[in-house]
Simulated assay, not measured.
Amino acid sequence: MPTQTSDQRWAAQAAAGDENAFRELYRAHVRPVYWIAQGILASPADAEDVTQETFVVAWRKLPRLELQGESILPWLATICRFQAANRLRQRRRDRANTVDTLDETIPDTVSVEEQVITADLAARIADEVGTLSELDREVFRLCATEGYAYQTAAEELGVSHAVVRNRLSRVRTQLRGAVKEVRDA
Rank of each mutant, 00 (worst) to 15 (best):
E48F: 13
H29F: 11
H29S: 07
E48A: 14
V33W: 13
I40S: 03
P44F: 04
A28E: 06
Q38T: 00
I36K: 04
L41H: 01
P44M: 08
Y34R: 00
A42D: 07
D46L: 07
A37N: 05
R27S: 07
Q38F: 15
S43Q: 02
A28W: 03
Y26A: 09
Q52Y: 13
P32H: 10
E53M: 13
P32M: 08
L41M: 07
A42G: 03
A28Y: 07
W35I: 05
F22D: 12
A47V: 02
A47Q: 01
G39A: 13
S43L: 00
V30T: 12
Y34A: 03
T51S: 14
H29W: 15
G39V: 06
A42M: 03
R27Y: 03
V50H: 08
R31W: 00
P32K: 09
D46S: 03
F55W: 10
E48V: 04
F55M: 06
T54S: 14
E24S: 15
D49M: 05
A47W: 05
P32C: 11
H29D: 06
P32D: 06
I40Y: 02
A45H: 10
Y34F: 15
L25P: 10
W35P: 02
A21H: 11
G39W: 01
H29C: 08
T54Q: 10
V50R: 01
P44R: 05
Q38D: 09
E53K: 12
P44H: 09
D46Q: 00
Q52E: 14
T51H: 12
A21Y: 05
L25R: 14
G39Q: 06
W35D: 09
E53R: 15
S43G: 08
A28I: 01
A42F: 05
I36N: 04
L25I: 10
D49N: 03
P32N: 11
P44E: 11
T51V: 05
Y26F: 15
P32E: 02
S43D: 01
A45N: 07
G39F: 04
Y26S: 11
T54I: 00
L41R: 01
Y34H: 09
F55N: 06
Q52N: 13
S43A: 06
L25N: 11
T54H: 12
E24T: 08
V30M: 10
V50S: 04
L41T: 02
R31E: 10
I40T: 02
R27G: 13
W35T: 02
P44L: 04
